[in-house]
Design a protein around this nucleic acid. Structure first.
Length: 716
RNA sequence: GACUGCUUAGCUCAGCGGCUAGAGCGUCUGACUUACAUUCAGAAGGUCGGGGGUUCAAAUCCCUCAGCAGUCACCA
């Protein structure tokens, strides 16, 4: 044994040995008939295209659970996968294109898709090998990709079943649309930011101009007045009571619109009169529906004003705003301007630009029935949430989700299997009572299911990535014929930041599709931050690459740093110093082994066999610690269990007991050496879920190269 | 505005009703004694944010105040 533990001499070799020996492979033969307990986790599929970051390394908690249950002799399955990460990946790819002076508009759909496919496939192995370097006990024989044919088929099946049950509908609504990225988003993906805006007070002349009177409205978006179809006041507002029903004229377009009354209007805000633009504002859209107002779209999906904008056609929104304000001033139609007005604006989470609310036909998931069912499951504790404070948050979400827009206008994704009938003669199929001219088909149809003709076209949109990943637990297991053995899975472990995006949706879709919860336990970990508690980001330059840490200090040390003394579900401060501390701990473990090993080798023939009081004390102490360890592990207190071994191994076994026994042992007290060795080896097993590599390396040194710690079991 | 979390040593954090409140890093003193200097022995350093309550017992449970952070939210 070297004087110091050198992880890079062993780690890769150890991992490939495990893989070669199929240790990671879940054996399902006879599993339904034998009594072996099952323990399964589906790995949250990382983006196939990107490098792992420290957040992914937090999945080490899953490895801890999996290896712990392996050592408890359960049949374990940890199923790996990769996510196509639709919009994320297309965004990255477009950035690459830009470097080459190209854009997505230079290619047709098929070509662009193929290019991205190749781009992703090239990088996918990289991501998987990084998972290997972390030491993860993943059953690679069962790996899945969200775009595997069989997965896509299940995703289609879910979509169809939802559609058949009336839980999917197509509707023209306002959606959050990024005119730069060229796609709409769900509400969750909108980043609301507070911005400094300008509040303009604009005069709208009355139609029955008595003495040139005006109605003044306040707005931050003067350019949308071109699409105004009403002005609203509060019915209780005395100032305006007798104006309700009157008409005003919208400048430039010279449209006459009515003054309507709605409780939504806050009389205290602005002038108490609100311009209503149903096509470009979420509130106004609702009011428009309520009052049957026209929907006049003046902004197009390219971010420019359209023909409804008259003289302003062709201008970008920001240009149009300037131009309109200028002209309003010329016409003396601006009463006043309030600068530095703070309001909240939806922005694109990817490119940061302001999103436009635009009317668009999209596919929506009707959330409430799914959410209420999910809520029941949580309330009945069919799914347990750890840490439990997230239970309340999850329940809150189930009451506050809006219908889920799952249509994305991007190429890289699973194309929606919806087809539109273009025939004039509708509804030949009497079974389809729907008045919609859309039908859903899992297989590519050769005939229109509505008119029986061939005059139909597939929707060009793709699914929101979360729609497919939301089906991940059952989709993966079904496609690998593991459903009956491992569904519901034991644990879903992921970061708390994607609770509404992913966890909640898996629960809803899982229950819908299978009737059962997709997992028994949700275990949420915190976010990895830098040593001052700051979020890691490229712009701050405080990002630490997990692979660099492994190169320098070994995978075990990195893993330790992510688990050692962290609060459950709490964000953690990560630093290279912490990894170094864990590297030192590895070295300490190594040297305890080295000390024992050297003395075994040096054992002289005249061994003594004196019983020592201190050994009794050691055994007793270890027994207590072991009890605590199991209690902590079984209650998912991994950090504390790890801390317990750290303390025991280093500061009790090494610093105290070995120091006390040192002369005895070097003088040949075999009894002491044996006791020490046995306890040490047992500690290695206890430590193995946290430090898989070093424990295996030492195990082999003590028991033989062909042996593996993975074949041992906990002693009780 | 709603919800959640945090406030403990110089810094970053554990501690989840029960011995004298801990760790990592940092600081100071000492040790070339060794399985390990990626080490060891020792020291300094905390009225556990303030106040109140429950309890034989509170950093830990409850209430309240303050500060900080995060997530969510349709006010033009």
């Amino acid at each position: 044994m070297d004087k110091n533990y050198q992880p890079n001499k062993f780690e890769e070799k150890i991992y490939s040995q495990w893989e070669k020996n199929s240790f990671f492979k879940a054996q399902i033969n006879n599993l339904l008939t034998n009594k072996k307990k099952r323990f399964s986790i589906i790995l949250p599929p990382p983006n196939a295209n990107a490098n792992l970051h420290l957040g992914h390394a937090m999945y080490v908690h899953e490895d801890i659970m999996i290896r712990y249950h392996k050592l408890l002799n359960d049949e374990v399955l940890w199923l790996p996968g990769a996510d196509h990460a639709g919009f994320e990946t297309q965004f990255v790819f477009e950035r690459e294109l830009k470097k080459q002076g190209k854009s997505r508009f230079d290619y047709d759909r098929e070509t662009l898709f193929k290019m991205i496919w190749n781009f992703v496939m090239k990088n996918r192995n990289n991501m998987e090998n990084q998972l290997r370097r972390l030491g993860f006990f993943l059953d690679w024989s069962k790996k899945k990709f969200t775009m595997d044919e069989d997965i896509v088929e299940i995703v289609y099946d879910t979509f169809k079943k939802l559609f058949d049950k009336g839980l999917i509908y197509r509707d023209e609504k306002l959606v959050n649309y990024c005119t730069y990225c060229g796609t709409s988003f769900s509400d969750l993906e909108v980043v609301n930011k507070e911005k400094n805006s300008i509040l303009y007070y604009i005069k709208y002349p009355f139609v029955n101009k008595k003495n040139g009177e005006y109605l003044v409205v306040a707005t931050t978006r003067p350019e949308t007045l071109l699409g105004d179809t009403a002005v609203a006041v509060n019915p209780k507002d005395r100032r305006y009571k007798n104006l309700i029903g009157e008409e005003v004229i919208i400048p430039f377009v010279e449209r006459k619109v009515r003054i309507i009354a709605d409780n939504f209007v806050d009389p205290k805000f602005g002038t108490g009169a609100v311009k209503i633009t149903p096509a470009h504002d979420f509130n106004d859209f609702e009011i428009g529906k309520k009052h049957n107002l026209d929907l006049i779209q003046v902004i197009n999906f390219d971010g420019k004003l359209n023909e409804n904008a008259g003289e302003f056609k062709g201008l970008y929104v920001s240009q149009a705003r300037e131009a309109i304000v200028l002209k309003l001033k010329e016409k003396n139609l601006i009463e006043k301007i309030e600068e530095n007005y703070k309001n909240i604006i939806g922005t694109c989470y990817k490119c940061g630009r302001v999103l436009e609310p635009l009317p668009k036909e999209q596919w929506f998931v009707k959330i409430d029935p799914l959410a209420q069912k999910a809520k029941e499951f949580i309330k009945k504790e069919k799914i347990k949430i750890i840490p439990k404070r997230f239970k309340k948050i999850l329940l809150w979400w189930f009451d506050n989700f809006k219908d889920w827009n799952i249509s994305r206008q991007i190429v890289w994704g699973i194309r929606i299997p919806a087809y539109k009938c273009n025939s004039k003669f509708k509804i030949k199929n009497s079974k389809l009572k729907t008045k919609s001219n859309w039908f859903i088909s899992i297989k590519k149809p050769d005939k229109c299911q509505i008119c029986g003709d061939c005059n139909f076209k597939q929707d060009t949109d793709t699914f929101d990535t979360w729609f497919s990943s939301g089906q991940w637990p059952y989709a993966t297991l079904k496609s690998k014929n593991l459903f009956d053995y491992f569904y519901p899975t034991s644990v879903m472990e992921t970061g708390y930041d994607i609770l509404p995006w992913w966890v909640a949706r898996m629960i809803m879709l899982g229950i819908f599709y299978t009737g059962k919860e997709p997992f028994k336990i949700v275990y949420l970990h915190g976010l990895v931050r830098d040593k001052y508690g700051q979020k890691m980001s490229k712009s701050k330059g405080n990002v630490i690459n997990p692979m660099d840490m492994i190169d320098k200090y070994g995978a075990d040390a990195l893993r330790g740093a992510l688990v050692f003394e962290i609060g459950e579900g709490a964000d953690l401060s990560f630093s290279e110093e912490k990894v170094i501390a864990m590297r030192n701990f590895c070295n300490k473990i190594w040297n305890i082994g080295r000390f024992i090993n050297i003395n075994i080798k040096n054992q002289i023939l005249n061994t003594k066999n004196k019983k020592l009081k201190i050994l009794k004390q050691l055994n007793k102490e270890f027994k207590t610690e072991k009890k605590k360890y199991f209690k902590l592990m079984n209650n998912y207190h991994f950090s504390r269990a790890f801390g317990l071994i750290y303390e025991f191994l280093w500061h009790r076994l090494a610093d105290f007991y070995i120091e006390q026994l040192k002369t005895e042992i070097t003088n040949g007290n075999i009894n002491a050496l044996e006791s020490l060795k046995n306890i040490y080896l047992e500690c290695l097993i206890m430590l193995h879920p946290f430090f898989p590599f070093i424990t295996e390396v030492i195990w082999k040194i003590f028991n033989g190269e062909e042996k593996s710690i993975l074949l041992s079991k906990f002693k009780n």
